[in-house]
């Protein structure tokens, strides 16, 4: 994974070195020097912060890569568990926002980790940190709205419908009309636990609430 989230550092470096003068035809820099880590992106407290929010000490990671090898997400995405733990060790906090949400939480990595670190828990800790420092990310809010509306975090795509047809499976049932009661219970639960407050979603306030949710759901599906 390339560390892409350091525009300030990039700008600073390029002006310092005078390399901002060298421009390609498109106006971007010809020489990309910001692929060099300077330590400016390093947050020395990140490791301790992860421990505070329930993760283990990532400094003990041997970087053996066993977690990546057993991770279903690493297999299908550019994110490699071991690599993310390395970036935790380095204290590259910024890059983490939104990435740890991709972890499916299957805990296979924990089962195989010789250093007994439990990367899945580390990612949960980072989610806590992110929520406290930056708030709940947009896509979580959006999918919550979808859950309250349809009972699904993600609306099944046409692809899935086609696959099911091809495999001779029955079409997915439309859960909404039959499970209204469940949805209202879910909503009560969200409100009771103040989850709605945390994600800044005023749900259940008559038609307005539903409309808001629908709007958000619509945005998410765009």
């Amino acid at each position: 994974m390339t560390p892409g989230g350091a525009p300030e550092a990039q700008k600073k470096r390029s002006t310092e070195n005078g390399s901002s003068d060298a421009k390609s035809a498109e106006g971007g820099p010809l020489i990309v020097e910001d692929s060099v880590f300077t330590g400016a992106e390093h947050d020395p407290d990140f490791v301790k912060q992860i421990i505070r929010y329930g993760g283990k000490d990532v400094q003990t990671c041997l970087q053996c890569g066993n977690c990546t090898g057993v991770c279903p997400v690493s297999l299908k995405t550019p994110y490699k568990t071991r690599n993310l733990i390395k970036l935790c060790q380095y204290g590259y906090k910024r890059i983490f926002f939104t990435i740890p949400w991709i972890c499916a939480g299957c805990h296979r990595c924990h089962e195989h980790c010789p250093a007994d670190i439990n990367p899945a828990e580390v990612f949960v800790a980072i989610r806590h940190i992110e929520v406290r420092e930056k708030g709940v990310p947009r896509f979580i809010r959006d999918s919550t709205a979808l859950i309250l509306r349809h009972g699904f975090g993600a609306i099944p795509s046409d692809d899935i419908k086609r696959y099911r047809e091809k495999e001779g499976m029955p079409p997915l049932p439309n859960t909404l009309p039959g499970y209204r009661k469940v949805l209202s219970e879910l909503e009560a639960l969200f409100r009771k636990t103040r989850f709605t407050e945390l994600i800044g979603l005023e749900t259940g306030e008559g038609a307005a609430g539903e409309r808001k949710a629908r709007e958000r759901g619509g945005e998410a599906s765009k």
């Binding site: 994974m1 053996c64 890569g65 090898g69």
Partner: peptide, 28 residues
């Protein structure tokens, strides 16, 4: 460089497939 993650056997040939992350390549 990488710790074998999974070892699977082909029941016919008894050959073994090792899945691992080659950590220096960042590739499984």
């Amino acid at each position: 460089r990488g710790r074998p993650a999974r070892v699977l056997e082909d029941p016919a040939t008894h050959n073994l497939t090792i899945r691992a992350e080659e950590t220096l390549l960042n590739k499984i």
